[in-house]
Structures are given as structure tokens and as C-alpha cells.
């Protein structure tokens, strides 16, 4: 079967909306209800965060959601249990995002096998560098048809972006500014960088993330790329939600309508 991420970009090239949510947040068993609502109200892709005790690349909001999820009892084993038959009701591509230590401890091959078994399409591991992936782990990810999605930043050289593009599958995650997640930065300052990325004519689609929080920022980013990723703003929205379905509906329609 063709990877669902590739299927998506084969038919949709513009305004692709990827929403990040932390597994097991706000409550342990909210994982599937949140994902179901995201699909129903128009998210094109779901990025599901695997909580970690020490999320280095994340700002306070996603850190706190991760801590809360761990307190709720979330773990990789628990997550795979929750995802056992999620493909019965969710068709959009799903990406797992998390740090390398829990994956390494689970066993990289066992992790990939389990992802393939439940129906995961891609993985983002911000602290797994390109060189390590290339030297050691690439065959395992490819064996299970999992796309490893790499990040590029405003400081990434063109040469390195090209290299990342050649190793990447699915899409490239363009971090909009040099920062942890959830930092507010002026989108205007980043236009030169987005423009530069666009000019590179990469083989992979590009989604822009970090600092995308509403309709205006989503549209601004989408003008330069195939779409954008929203994380922190969505976590804030569902943090104290009394009705997940209603909250997700309001949040997504605020972006897409």
C-alpha cells in the first residue's frame, strides 16, 4: 500500500493542515476522541506526540502537556494499545512525534514494526540526526514503509537542505524560526527564509511549523509551502476543554473558514 502521506500530497498540494496533539492529553483516554474530531473537522494530517520526560525542543506549553500525559499514565506501550484498531475509523495520515530515548528503549525495530502494524505513516524524531539515521536506522524505517520526517531551520545551509531533501520521505518540516515550539515570532521576518525554501524546488512537499497559531499565520505560511503545522495553539485550546468534539470543531473552523 502506498504511504498515506504520499497519497495525501498526491491529491492536495495547498493549505495542508497538520495538527499536533499530545497522546494521552488532556486525559489518558482522549487520544482517539481528539484524533477522530481532528479528522472529522478537517485536519489533513495528525501529528501525535509521544510524551517524554525531557522534551528538549519544546517550549513550556507542549512540555506541560507531555508531563500531564505521563502523569495520566501514558507510555509507548499504552499508546500502541490505544491505537490498536484506530484505522477502523481514521483514514488521514498519522505521524508519531517524539524523542529518541523512548524509541531506543522500546527497540527501534520493534517500534517500527508496531507502528506499521497499527497503521502509522511517518515519524518525527527531532533528536535523531540525519547522519545517525543514514548510518544506522534507515533500513529499518524503510522496511516498515515509515517516512522519517526531518526538520530544517532558517540556519540550515542550502547544501544541507538538499541532503535532507534527498533522505526525506513524506514531507519536510520547516521550522519557521530558530526556536523551541510555541515562541511568538513575527512572520514577516521569516518571509525571506520561506521564499528561499520555495526557490529551492525541493522534491518533497514542505510544511511550516513553530509559531503557526491562527488563520492569519496559517495562510501566511501556506503561501510559501504546501501547508502548515499547528501545535502549541491547539494544545492551549484543548487543555481545559469540557467538550473535546466542540473545541476541536471551533478551533479548526477558526483556521479553515
Amino acid at each position: 500500500m502506498q504511504n498515506r502521506i504520499d497519497q495525501l500530497f498526491a491529491v492536495k498540494r495547498h493549505n495542508v493542515l497538520n495538527i499536533y496533539c499530545t497522546a494521552g492529553f488532556p486525559e489518558l483516554n482522549d487520544t482517539l476522541p481528539v484524533m477522530t474530531a481532528l479528522q472529522q473537522y478537517g485536519a489533513d494530517l495528525i501529528e501525535l506526540g509521544m510524551p517524554f520526560s525531557d522534551p528538549l525542543a519544546d517550549g513550556p506549553v507542549i512540555q506541560d502537556s507531555s508531563t500531564k500525559a505521563l502523569q495520566n499514565g501514558m507510555s509507548l506501550h499504552k499508546l500502541f494499545e490505544q491505537l490498536t484498531s484506530f484505522r477502523d475509523r481514521i483514514q488521514v495520515p498519522v505521524i508519531l512525534m517524539g524523542y529518541f530515548n523512548p524509541v531506543l528503549t522500546y527497540g527501534v525495530e520493534a517500534f517500527c514494526a508496531k507502528c506499521a502494524e497499527v497503521g502509522i505513516d511517518g515519524i518525527i524524531v527531532p533528536d535523531l540526526p540525519m547522519a545517525e539515521y543514514e548510518n544506522e536506522y534507515r533500513p529499518v524505517f524503510e522496511k516498515y514503509n515509515l517516512h522519517l520526517i526531518f526538520l530544517v531551520t532558517p540556519e540550515t545551509s542550502e547544501e544541507r537542505i538538499r541532503k535532507i531533501d534527498s533522505l526525506s520521505k513524506g514531507f519536510i518540516y520547516a521550522v519557521s524560526s530558530s526556536s523551541t515550539t510555541g515562541k511568538d515570532k513575527d512572520m514577516k521576518d521569516q518571509q525571506a527564509y520561506f521564499e528561499r525554501l520555495k526557490q529551492l524546488q525541493l522534491k518533497n512537499p514542505v510544511l511550516i511549523g513553530f509559531g503557526i497559531k491562527d488563520k492569519a499565520t496559517f495562510e501566511a505560511a501556506s503561501a510559501y509551502a504546501n501547508g502548515a503545522i499547528i501545535g502549541t495553539a491547539f494544545i492551549r485550546a484543548i487543555e481545559h476543554s469540557k467538550n473535546i468534539d466542540e473545541t476541536v470543531k471551533t478551533f479548526i473552523s477558526g483556521i479553515t473558514q
Binding site: F52, S53, D54, L56, L70, S75, L76, H77, Y99, F100, N101, P102, V103, L104, T105, Y106, D127
Partner: peptide, 22 residues
Amino acid sequence: GTIGIIHASKTLLMQTNDGQIV
């Protein structure tokens, strides 16, 4: 400890069975 990644280094560290640093 067991082998894992802490502060960007692959080394021995104290962690749970789930790979959370203790």
C-alpha cells in the same frame, strides 16, 4: 542505568522501562 540518550549523548542513564528519564 541502561543505555539511552540524555542531553544529546548516547550513554548510560537512569530511566524507566518506558524510556522516561528518572
